[in-house]
Amino acid sequence: MSARAEAPRRHRHSAGVQLILDFLNRLPPYRWTQSRLVRWGITGRTAVTAIPYLWLLLFFLVPFIIVLKIAFSEARIGMPPYAPLLTWIDGSVAQVNLQLKNFANMFQDSLYAKAYLNSIKVAAVSTLFCLLIGYPMAYAIARAESKWRHILLMLVILPFWTSFLLRVYAWIGILKNNGLINNFLMWTGLIDEPIVMLQTDFAIYVGIVYSYLPFMILPLYSNLEKMDLTLLEAAADLGARPFKTFMTITLPLSLPGIIAGSMLVFIPAVGEFVIPELLGPSDSLMIGKVLWQVFFTKRDWPAASAVAIALLLLLVIPIVLLQRAQAAEARGAHR
């Protein structure tokens, strides 16, 4: 037996970095850049870790710090419309101005708590529907013949190549009183009066589930596709009927995928603004809309920033869950 070539040492990244790396490695420009860097000797862990790290730094940490800074300020008429963090007294002594009232306000006014809770509820229900719809789809794609799989995956990803906003607008055309659905139903004679679907909570759910479904399908597919099919045969051999096999083997093993997909839907859905604004009723109470109103109608940038920071802190728990699910998945793959 010929000697095996020395396999490159695999480096374990933190789950967040791994997620970004997985995405970046799918982009030809990234891979090209990486191959160039490797040629110039910037290789291995340094370059690989540095790129996503810098990206995170530039596009997350810096903006976050800016928003945090504004959250501790107070609104005033001026450019920009909030008080500065540092003021110079007599040109030599710096005074730090921190305001906590923006955060305090959020506790005093019940509007915020209600908006957060409602947003979480809407996001949770949407996530559930995404799971119920997305799981069978992911399962079907994972079990399809390999020549069909790529086409099916493309179909799932293709809508991302069009503008998110346009796709939500399209739903207006589909759901409105003289839109596609109602016109079709009335043409077939099934209904006499149009069914009111637009500007309802139903429309919000339709919008969110539709827009975020690929985020549920892709991690689930990734997990199900890697599943060892002989496990299912073994279960059948040991006497488990197909449904039992699904519940005791497939479902538990796909749990990391379920969690990852759910978090990828839930986390952005909580802060959704566009979909409730375009498709939902005027009285839909979501934190994204509240934030918009505080920023634009009330013209209070600091208060709005505080709402944004609070929203982020609220989502820390699901984000941690997502990280752990990703790590579990990575561990499983390395076994």
Binding site: K114, A115, D283, K289, D300
Partner: peptide, 19 residues
């Protein structure tokens, strides 16, 4: 002014969302 803006915003939130 600032005060009236804040009041207006809150009243409007109540009007639109009912909260």
């Amino acid at each position: 002014g600032e005060q009236a803006t804040a009041t207006m915003a809150r009243l409007w939130q109540k009007f639109t969302t009912g909260q």
